[in-house]
Amino acid sequence: MTAVTESAPAATRRAPEPELDPEGASKTQRITVFFFVLIPLLALVAAVPFAWGWGLTWTDIIIGAVFYVIGGLGITVGFHRHFTHGSFKANRPLRIALAIAGSMAIEGSVIKWVADHRRHHKYADHEGDPHSPWRFGDDWRSVAKGLFYAHMAWMFLSEEKTSPKRFAPDLLKDKDVLRVDRMFIPLVLFSLFAPAAIGGLVTMSWWGAFTAFFWAGLVRVALLHHVTWSVNSICHTIGEENFEVRDRSRNVWWLAVPSFGESWHNLHHADPTCARHGVLKGQVDISARTIWIFEKLGWATKVRWPNTERLAAKRVSV
């Protein structure tokens, strides 16, 4: 793929359609996703019984869950729906809190994260998208390579750097956001070591501090990272298309709860500024419910809730 420069972005083009039989291609992609994502996750789950009682306790799980929710909602409600797409207006305390919470997910500083994601939407699954899984082709080897690239390798291997001046000029002018952006390293250290401090104080032991650091610090961050990255990779590879889009964004139901509703990705690409991604019956969207609570408390205003007519116009016929 031709490199993209910020001064002269490459023209977008439709991603190549699969040359394989659609049913066979879909089955191959699902199998590839299974081996790429689910097997390592199952290995982690299998390790839990062996560690339970001596290397993992309810204290570690509770601390990890609290930090997972803080960081996860900081990304989905804060970095994504608020800062990137302007799905709602937040008062100053909430805006600062969301920037801090999202930074604690350790997925990059707020300005860098927003710039990369806005660029993704501009070129979604076309030339210029920083993490499309379709950049190498449609056969199973290319899909596997593309999944790895879209999932995490793009952050280390891509030479196409996103310009914050081009994609996030509004945040560069926001003094509060700039301060939080510059505090990224201290926030990373807090996110990693605060669980250890809490675990040590609760158990009054160094061992309790260590297990909390491992499970509520390292494992929690790794799990949240892979869930977030799965939206980039899996949700652009397999799943359902309920709304018409110009890319390959899809809905993946089994990622909905751990991603706080982000895996209803097809609707998001059909209507990026909508505050709710799970708009159909049975589509759980924890982030949207959180925004609703903020609105009821008066902390969030001008929320862009789904428009029935707009959604109907984009609905895929069945």
Score class of each variant (00 low, 15 high):
A3G: 15
A3D: 14
E6N: 12
T12M: 10
R13V: 04
R13P: 01
P16A: 09
E17T: 04
D21K: 08
D21H: 10
A25D: 06
S26W: 12
K27N: 01
K27I: 00
K27D: 00
T28W: 13
I31M: 14
L44N: 02
V48K: 07
P49H: 12
G55W: 08
D60S: 11
I62P: 02
I70A: 00
G71W: 11
G71T: 12
L73K: 03
L73W: 01
I75Q: 00
T76Q: 06
V77N: 03
H85R: 00
N91Q: 10
P93E: 10
A97I: 07
A101Y: 07
A101I: 12
A105L: 11
E107Y: 09
G108M: 10
I111F: 02
I111D: 03
K112V: 05
K112H: 07
A115Y: 01
D116L: 00
D116R: 00
H120T: 04
K122M: 10
A124W: 02
A124C: 14
E127W: 14
G128T: 13
P133E: 01
P133R: 01
F136C: 03
D138E: 03
W140L: 01
R141M: 15
S142Y: 04
S142R: 08
A144K: 05
K145E: 15
K145P: 10
L147M: 13
F148C: 09
F148I: 08
H151E: 01
M155G: 06
E160K: 01
S163T: 08
S163W: 03
P164S: 08
R166N: 04
L172Y: 09
R179K: 15
V180A: 12
V180Y: 11
I185T: 12
F190C: 13
S191V: 07
I198W: 10
W206P: 03
A216S: 15
L218R: 08
V219K: 02
A222K: 12
V227H: 07
N232S: 04
I234C: 11
H236K: 15
T237Q: 04
E241S: 14
E241H: 13
F243M: 05
R248Y: 06
R248D: 05
V252T: 11
V252N: 05
V257R: 05
P258D: 02
S259G: 07
S259C: 09
S259A: 12
S263Y: 03
H269W: 10
D271K: 01
D271E: 10
T273I: 12
A275N: 00
R276T: 05
G278P: 03
G278R: 00
L280P: 08
Q283W: 09
R289C: 05
F294L: 13
K296H: 12
W299A: 12
A300M: 05
T301H: 02
K302Q: 14
R304V: 02
A313T: 13
R315S: 07
S317E: 15
V318Q: 15
